[in-house]
Amino acid sequence: MTADTIQLEIIAMEKRRKLYSTIGILLMIAVLASGYGLASSMNSGSFLNGLEKFFDYPGEIVREAWEAGSGFFALVLQFLPALIETLNIAGAATLVGGAAAVVLAFLGSSNLGVKPPVIISVVRRIMDSMRAFPELIIALFLIFILGSSPVPAMIAVAFHTAGALGKLFSEVNENADAAPIEGLESCGANWLQRMRYGVLPQVLPNFLSYFMLRFEINVRASAILGFVGAGGIGTELRRTIGWGRGAGDETAALFFLLILSIFAIDQLSSFMRQRLVSGKAGS
């Protein structure tokens, strides 16, 4: 094979790649354009009409909040318990789901010597199906049986969290250094001891970082589930929005609380995650 043929081949390959990426981009634009066309035609309100009205609603509630004056802050205080309930749903769900995820992750990692190996694939399938179950379905089902309460939302979010975090945790486990595990094994440590002293210290910072990220996601999920009857800030929002006009100041207060808390958690979790992963935390 001469240099010329190689060069020709490279040029041909380059051309082919260019063609592919051009086709890909065109295809994507076509899909987007036709998708929005389709979506707009399926919508009950049209796009252009909606665009004009887009600022109407936020404007309305801001105006009503403004007119409420200092009463607005009283409203914010009044809704604080609802926010705490939502945060509790998310917190408890993340803790319970996270604990289940740790167990699942250790059983579902391929490098930790789980015996018999069948367990690994079984646990992985379990985690996959736990992730696939939309929270909404579990929540609706449990609300039907248990009645409107924060507990159905908590269980639904925890179930999903166990699957989602379990997968991320097991990926972290699989990247763990094998040397400490082997060292402990040669000292006669049993499986639990090897995990506790050989693996856990290595993976804990990453676990905590994912845990924090999940907490943030779960706060959002719990707020949304409130809307279908799970309690907390979502239920309050549904009530005030259902009233239509007149409750704009209450809606504004709820929006304010939700945005503020999500913003705070978002900033806090990204700050702490950065510290945890870059190893600047603690001692």
Binding site: G35, Y36, L38, A39, S40, M42, N43, S44, G45, F47, G50, L51, K53, F54, D56, Y57, P58, R220, A223, I224, F227, G234, L237, I241, F255, L258, I259, I262, F263, D266, Q267
Partner: peptide, 27 residues
């Protein structure tokens, strides 16, 4: 931060008000 902080819940409520029911709102 603002886009993320105003949660999907709030965005959907705002868009449902202005665009009505349908996939466009959700998208």
């Amino acid at each position: 931060d603002l886009l993320r902080g105003i949660d999907m819940l709030i965005w959907s409520l705002i868009f449902i008000r202005s665009f009505g029911l349908g996939p466009l709102t959700g998208a």
